[in-house]
Design a protein around this nucleic acid. Structure first.
Lengths: 342, 342
DNA sequence: TTGAAAGCGCTACCAA
DNA sequence: TTGGTAGCGCTTTCAA
């Protein structure tokens, strides 16, 4: 027969306990811990000793309730499963953590309904700030957050347009333009582009970059060689297969992301074409698989870690009211990573 | 000159406001919202209308402070960047979310110091439960959590040993044993194993599986063909290269994870060996890159999503006191995924 | 330099 | 079926 005490939950040590133990008032304890007003050195030492001895840990909720702030920052992303977003969270955590902020990660799953629900949760939980990353912040969501006193930064391609909140982004158009220009100059022959699905928010920006790069070299883009596919391996594979089946023979295939590119490499190989000897292929994102691909994939690295850090810094200045001016828009460059595939 | 009001933060609507608006007491409002005692239909309707009209949202902290529970479950993982862990979080969220629990993800970065710090945070934040996943829970951490009334589940290979907390795990040994047996029977010739780094907690279990599989077929393991490497592409590549340089020609290479395996494939290819024609290779984890590898990688899928769900269910029963018995240990099978590489 | 006490918003107990 | 109210643990005036 089991007789262990089921509820071993110990009573929490409170400010009151510490005050009693140190022979001072609660106010003094609170003060010593927060440094909000001067305290006699001797008293201070006594309080600290009591804190140590009793193992006092402040109750987060009581503090949050009283101060109306939770010392928590939310990071809201569309897909926690894609490496980019955890990296953003790590970057932000690196800045915010040491300053005493908790960083909480929320996953919208790409659903508008979930986005809204999370925004409501954030105001209920009185987060001090929110970094919405990977999709354009809805104005109504931004308003709701700001009215509740939540500082906001949006990190998303194309997000520079809003005058109401700070943004961080990578200039995808410029990155793909540069990559296209660099690679197109190397290969003699038709150049193809496999873009992302038209519904996706990054697709048009990347395609614009490809077109601009072509134009820089005064090359025409052949509509039969410009197509789109889901952002997947299978999507890239069938897109290039379709071109090859149609008798087209691109010398270079610029792809809107790495998965498409790796799929395209597979298609080329299945067709008996050497990569990069007969078809060169490039991607975008620099996912893990890019380095491990055969041949290793030439791609673009958007440094999500740095984006997270940057977003956190902007947010911090808003939360602490260090900066009060108009919305700031920070653009980071994405760098080409040249490997063997193109 | 900017004259917009700087603090647009609106005063929160409280229970008091709703009560006044509906002409009832705070107690009644609280009751209607939580369903904790019967209320006359007419009163109920009036309260609900007031809630609607005023846009009332309960204050999470006040509630947590009063009830001494936060309706939050923490998931603590060693590396938020590895796909497995976000998947676990999603699985747990799928169970816990609809029941009104918030799921918060914490990243220890593989550091013991951070683990401890997070455990302290969790007790401060009065989480109702914690799923510690991907590393063995330290007994002292478990004690600290349980003493604060936090329900605990540990998900980690080899974690079945503790009588003090529930565990969920995948039997890595059995999985690799089965895979080894299956593959080894197919190929005629020497069989190699590239294991993980000896410091890593999963390495010995996977190696044991390999050895058991070999034994099942009464095959001897050649020490020169049994090596270890970091869990990386580069690690796998140099490990197999070293064997080949030494004049060894394994017909099958069983690897402790996918990155090692994909690196080994690269090494074989660089040596002009066909995969799987001359060297067959298998991995473990079924990461994204496995499917995209050339040839697609034969591997083992540990279904982190299901593990997350399972852990959440165990935790839930502890949190709600639905289950009060001795520690339970759930083992899920990991399934082989046979592709072209072996 | 310190203490007393109000009150953050909520729930749950005790009465009616 | 409902209301009054104490109190969760903390910070922050106001007074001394």
């Amino acid at each position: 027969m089991v007789t262990a005490p089921r509820d071993s939950r110990e009573r929490r040590v409170t400010v009151r306990d510490v005050a009693a133990h140190a022979g001072v008032s609660q106010a003094t304890v609170s003060q010593v811990l927060s440094g909000s007003r001067p305290v006699a050195e001797e008293t201070r030492a006594r309080v600290l000793a009591a804190v140590q001895e009793l193992g006092y840990r402040p109750n987060h909720f009581a503090r949050a309730l009283r101060q109306q702030k939770s010392h928590t920052v939310a990071i809201v992303v569309p897909n926690i499963t894609h490496v980019t977003y955890p990296m953003v969270a790590r970057g932000a955590g690196e800045i915010l953590g040491p300053l005493g902020y908790q960083v909480a990660l929320y996953d919208t799953n790409g659903l508008r309904a979930t986005e809204k629900q999370i925004v409501r949760t954030l105001t209920d939980r009185m987060v001090d700030g929110a970094i919405v990353f990977g999709y354009p912040l809805a104005p109504s969501d931004a308003r709701m957050l700001q009215e509740s006193g939540v500082a906001v930064v949006n990190g998303s391609p194309g997000s520079e347009s809003s005058p109401l909140w700070d943004t961080v982004q990578v200039d995808e158009t410029a990155a793909l333009r540069y990559l296209t220009r660099t690679l197109a100059a190397r290969y003699d022959g038709p150049i193809a582009y496999i873009g992302g699905p038209s519904g996706h928010n990054t697709a048009p920006r990347r395609e614009a970059g490809f077109r601009a790069g072509m134009q820089d070299l005064t090359l025409a883009t052949d509509p039969r060689l410009t197509t789109s596919a889901p952002y997947t391996w299978a999507g890239g594979r069938s897109a290039l297969t379709a071109m090859l089946e149609a008798g087209l023979r691109p010398r270079l295939v610029v792809c809107a992301n790495d998965m498409i590119a790796i799929g395209a490499i597979a298609a080329a190989r299945e067709y008996g074409l050497d990569v990069p000897g007969e078809v060169a292929v490039s991607g975008y994102d620099n996912i893990d698989a890019a380095e491990m691909a055969v041949p290793p994939l030439t791609t673009v690295e958007a440094s999500p870690f740095e984006q997270g850090r940057a977003a956190a810094r902007l947010l911090l200045e808003r939360m602490t009211d260090t900066y009060r001016g108009p919305a700031r828009h920070l653009t980071l460059s994405a760098e080409p990573v040249i490997r063997a595939s193109a």
